[in-house]
Amino acid sequence: MTTAASTKETTGVGPLLRGWRERRKVSQLELALRADSSARHISFIETGRSRPSEEIVLRLADHLDVPMRDRNALLVAAGYAPRFRETPLDDPSMGALREGLEQLLRGYEPYPALIVDATYNVIAANRGIAMIIDGIPEHLLQPPLNAMRLTLHPEGLAPKIRNLREWRGHLLDQMDRQIALQRSAALRAVYEEVAAYPVADPGADTFDAGGEPGGMPYFALPLRIEHDGHLLSFTSSISTFNTPMDVTVAELAIETLLPADPATVKYLQSSVS
């Protein structure tokens, strides 16, 4: 029989904080020193012997690098109201943000750029992205359009990616690190789906880290993708908002595909209009 007390022991703020502390591999003493508290106080909070103040919950969450969405969950578990709003992007109050993001995407053209949420669903993209995904089957372009699914699906971009095994490994590692940090069941579901896709083994599915055939060294792992008979090379750059105050904004990421060689620059400048 599950009692109210036993439920609280597994779902209250104490166990949640302990879970984040253990996930970050931080001892009670180390966390106490970081948060200007004591190991005894941390222990009392984790075991439910002490109810933490709203301030200490937020302070501990900050030092444990807890995602904003989960900081709200910690506050609710401790008996407080959520601190951070989660405003839909189509809300009138987000008008300035939407306009700024659209201008940013246009500013990156002709280079491909897109905005994704915490599970890699595409929020917006520019004409550079539209060029790359031209010809993708319609069923993969139905909303919600997911960047990971679109990239790694056997009917998506995967057959066009010359170094698919390396790029796939990079994307799966990236998601795996995020899952470890965020404990996101939704992202885990996306990971398990795309990781299960079959991987073709074409002769060109290899990558020489020393550089491209012409001898130019790469400064980061490139995405090498065929488009209309041309081999394009990109490196990926991801940006997030500094000190966000809204859950929606905190979970947005802007990814830009920057040309990794002069030939790609020239091709994009002549093709994206």
Rank of each mutant, 00 (worst) to 15 (best):
D62C: 12
V116F: 02
G48T: 02
S50H: 00
T87F: 02
M68G: 15
L64G: 04
A77R: 00
Y111W: 08
L60F: 08
L105E: 10
L89F: 02
E109Y: 01
P88G: 13
V66D: 15
A81F: 01
P52T: 01
E46C: 12
Y108N: 09
P88M: 02
F84W: 10
G95N: 11
V76A: 05
P92L: 13
I115L: 11
E109R: 00
P110N: 06
D90Y: 11
E86F: 00
N72K: 00
E54W: 03
L60E: 10
R98E: 06
Y80K: 00
S53K: 01
F84I: 00
L75Q: 04
D91F: 05
D65A: 12
Y108K: 10
N72D: 09
E55Q: 15
S53F: 01
P92G: 07
R69T: 04
I56K: 05
Y111V: 12
F84H: 05
N72V: 02
P92K: 03
H63C: 12
D70S: 15
L75G: 01
P112Q: 04
S93C: 14
P67W: 05
L97E: 04
R85Y: 03
I45Y: 11
L104W: 03
R69E: 14
E99T: 09
S50N: 10
G100N: 04
P92T: 03
L97Y: 01
V116D: 14
R69I: 08
A77E: 04
P82T: 05
R69H: 11
I42C: 15
L75W: 00
S43T: 15
I115A: 07
A113M: 01
R98H: 09
Y108R: 05
L60K: 06
E46R: 07
S93F: 12
V116Y: 06
L64N: 13
A77H: 00
H63S: 14
F84L: 05
I42Q: 11
D65G: 14
G79T: 00
R51I: 07
R51A: 13
A73R: 06
T47Y: 05
P88S: 12
L60C: 12
H63Q: 15
S53W: 01
R83G: 02
P82H: 01
E99A: 13
P112N: 06
L58C: 12
R49D: 13
I45F: 08
D117R: 00
R85L: 10
L58F: 06
P112L: 02
L58M: 14
P52F: 02
S53M: 03
L74D: 09
I115P: 07
F84S: 09
L64Q: 11
G95H: 10
G100H: 02
M68R: 10
S93G: 09
R71A: 10
R71Y: 01
G48M: 01
P67E: 12
A113D: 09
P67H: 04
P110F: 05
S43N: 15
V57D: 14
F44S: 15
D70N: 14
L105T: 03
V57Q: 07
L74Q: 06
F84P: 03
E109A: 06
L97D: 04
P52S: 08
L97V: 01
A77C: 00
D91Q: 10
Y80M: 00
D65K: 12
P88E: 05
R59N: 15
E55H: 13
D62F: 09
G107E: 07
E46Y: 03
V66L: 11
G79E: 00
F44C: 15
D90R: 11
P92N: 13
E86P: 11
P92R: 11
R106M: 04
